[in-house]
């Protein structure tokens, strides 16, 4: 029995191992590069002669404030975008008829808009309300541009919660708003966790809004610093890879924190 089971998992397991090696290989190269001195960088796939931690010092030194800025931008933006996604997903999941579908459709069209095209009008908008080069400005922008996707995601999530729960709550004297705040939202932990992972990654890695709407150390996030390790003519591969690996950490931590909730039920978890 045991050997039969072992045989049954042997092939899938080896496929997984091969896949994991392929997935990890580029990261290993990145890690090795982050430990090479400039004179060794020309030999990309060789091992470093000695571990050159200087790259991490350079990366850390230059990232400085921007790392904190990224955290200050990302955390509230993720929370706000989740909240707005839930606020707009809720009515859309429960409204029946053409009106709701029209609004839903209208909001979803935003998913196909490439952000490059809004850049210049957006710059004016943010400046005119005095939020240029500020962290709250980045919250606003990230929240606004998350509306279509978060709506899409949360609406699908809420739609999988049995309608009977909603009707029962109303009969018990709950208002629709009360149902949302007191029952639905607290029960949606897994959906929100899943969306939080997706949003953290998207907002943390944003470069376009960062370089359009921030200019000083006060608000510039870490992606702009990372992009700064590569200029038009030269690329400092060592510090670039070191900075990349450092900047991975927060997203990874988010992932590890939320993955339990995530796995418990990505979609439709609340009702079951």
């Amino acid at each position: 029995m045991n050997t039969a089971a072992a045989r049954r998992t042997a092939l899938p397991f080896s496929i997984l191992v091969v896949a994991a090696v392929i997935f990890a290989a580029p990261l290993v190269v990145a890690l090795l590069t982050s430990l090479k001195s400039p004179s060794e960088i020309t030999r990309v796939i060789a091992l470093p002669n000695e571990l050159y931690f200087q790259n991490y010092a350079i990366a850390y030194d230059r990232m400085g404030r921007s790392f904190l800025n990224s955290i200050a931008i990302t955390v509230p933006s993720v929370i706000l975008s989740l909240l707005v996604g839930a606020i707009s997903g809720y009515p859309l999941a429960y409204m029946r008829g053409a009106g709701g579908r029209a609004v839903y459709f209208f909001l979803l069209t935003g998913m196909i808009v490439p952000f490059q095209i809004v850049q210049i009008p957006l710059f004016f908008l943010i400046r005119s309300i005095g939020l240029y080069d500020s962290i709250p400005g980045m919250w606003l922008v990230h929240t606004a541009y998350s509306v279509p996707f978060c709506t899409f995601f949360m609406r699908n999530f809420f739609a999988s919660v049995p309608r009977s729960m909603y009707e029962a709550a109303l009969i018990d004297g709950c208002t629709p708003a009360g149902y949302f705040w007191r029952l639905l939202l607290p029960a949606s932990g897994s959906g929100l966790a899943a969306l939080a992972i997706i949003q953290s990654r998207a907002i943390w890695n944003d470069l376009l809004f960062a370089i359009t709407l921030t200019t000083s150390d006060k608000a510039t996030p870490v992606t702009a610093t990372i992009a700064g390790f590569a200029s038009s003519l030269q690329v400092e591969y060592g510090p670039l890879m070191a900075a990349t690996l450092i900047s991975l950490l927060p997203v990874m931590v988010t992932y590890l924190l939320f993955q339990k909730a995530f796995v418990r039920g990505l979609l439709g978890g609340a009702g079951k």
Partner: peptide, 29 residues
């Protein structure tokens, strides 16, 4: 009926954000 009202209020925020940050820039483009 109150549900309808609530829905409208809830939707006003995302729709406003959408109008300001998507519709306006697209028109100007």
């Amino acid at each position: 009926q109150t549900a309808g009202m609530t829905h409208a209020i809830f939707l006003s925020l995302p729709v406003t954000l959408f109008a300001v940050f998507y519709v306006y820039p697209i028109i100007s483009t």
